[in-house]
């Protein structure tokens, strides 16, 4: 098999929180483990979905993979090369290959730049002159994402949310990257517009051979667009599998609870479903001082003594199906 395009090994990101000293050094204080010892591989051309509730660290993980954040520990390989320790100059070159599309269509575009300047900026950063050739490139890209050439001279505030998201996608693609992190890229859009953007992302993937990390909290959109799906809880990946398997036969109790909580698409039989639903009580604990052992044990209906003490490793329970739960490893 070919090698992964993106590979993370034992990746962690810890934020220090708490009081600062006189000149900014943290004195004591707590550590927020946003991402804790995560390893994963993303193969060329695939879409890996990443789901989890707010605060689980999925967005932080996405930013670590393209080095928008510096890892506290662990490594990221991009196309086989370690990018964790790259000097600024080499890093800039590597950045051509990986881009990000953000959630907020309002905060992601500089309100004082024209659409053309916004989309052209990555080209200029990488040495292109803002000449006719560059403008043609921008116009072609705008057209490819479904905007007219007239859009180039306008400002972001003249566009709707969906159109802004198209502009953000054009900016991400103008350097012809291979890997795109879609960080809640369709979450803020109205549902009728969301489908357009999902379709556009899929078309572009086919045409340009893109690899996606698709971060979202909407489980049905993730199922639609992904090949494999990873589920995150409190900074750790608890389950990772091909989407058909993960949605049809989730192994980790958290994945099961997450799927059970999604409202059904049809009202028929809802009373019975409500009665039968696996529910998790309470909220996700804070990532500052997370619970010891399995992080889900405080809410897990099947928690055992071992879960409170030993963190279960992410282990292969079936070919290509990884899960981190003592219920699964015990019997093996």
């Amino acid at each position: 098999m070919n090698r992964p395009l993106v590979e993370a090994t034992a990746l962690s990101k810890h934020f220090h929180v708490g009081p600062a000293g006189w000149f900014g050094r943290r004195i004591g204080g707590a550590v927020l483990r946003a991402v804790d010892d995560v390893s994963l591989r993303i193969m060329p051309g695939e879409t890996l979905g990443l789901v989890g509730e707010s605060g689980c660290g999925k967005s932080t993980l996405g930013r670590l993979l393209i080095r928008l954040l510096e890892a506290s520990d662990g490594h990221v390989l991009f196309d086989g090369a370690d990018i964790t320790g790259l000097a600024p100059k080499q890093l800039r070159e590597t950045r051509r290959g990986m881009q990000i599309v953000f959630q907020d269509p309002y905060g992601a575009l500089n309100p004082r730049m024209t659409v053309e300047d916004i989309v052209m900026e990555p080209l200029v950063i990488h040495g292109a002159k803002p000449d006719a050739a560059a403008r043609d490139k921008v116009a072609a890209m705008l057209e490819r994402v479904g905007l007219s050439a007239r859009a180039a001279s306008r400002f972001p505030h003249e566009f709707s949310g969906g159109q802004r998201q198209r502009i953000g996608i054009a900016r991400a693609l103008i350097l012809r990257p291979r890997f795109i992190v879609c960080d809640e890229a369709v979450s803020a859009l109205d549902v009728s517009v969301q489908a357009q953007i999902v379709n556009l992302l899929q078309d572009l993937q086919q045409e340009m051979g893109l690899t996606y990390l698709f971060i979202a909290h909407d489980l049905s959109v993730v199922r639609h667009i992904s090949d494999r799906v990873a589920v995150m809880y409190l900074g750790r990946i608890v389950e990772l599998a091909r989407k058909e398997e993960l949605y049809a036969a989730p192994l980790h109790p958290y994945t099961q609870a997450l799927l059970a909580a999604v409202p059904a698409p049809h009202p028929a039989g809802r009373a019975a479903r409500r009665a039968a639903r696996l529910r998790v009580a309470g909220d996700m604990p804070s990532a500052i001082n997370p619970p010891p052992g399995c992080r889900f044990h405080t809410r897990c209906p099947h928690a055992m003594a071992i879960c409170r003490e030993v963190a279960p490793p992410l282990a292969e329970t079936a070919p290509g199906h990884l899960a981190a739960c003592h219920l699964l490893t015990k019997t093996h």
């Binding site: 928008l68 990986m98 990000i100 905060g107 992601a108 575009l109 500089n110 990555p122 900016r171």
Partner: peptide, 22 residues
């Protein structure tokens, strides 16, 4: 912390460019 600044970082922009343009 605005996302368009993050986008410029992701595109490889240096500090000077980010300060001046964004």
């Amino acid at each position: 912390e605005m996302e368009y600044v993050q986008a410029a970082v992701a595109a490889g922009a240096g500090h000077w460019r980010i300060l001046r343009h964004h």
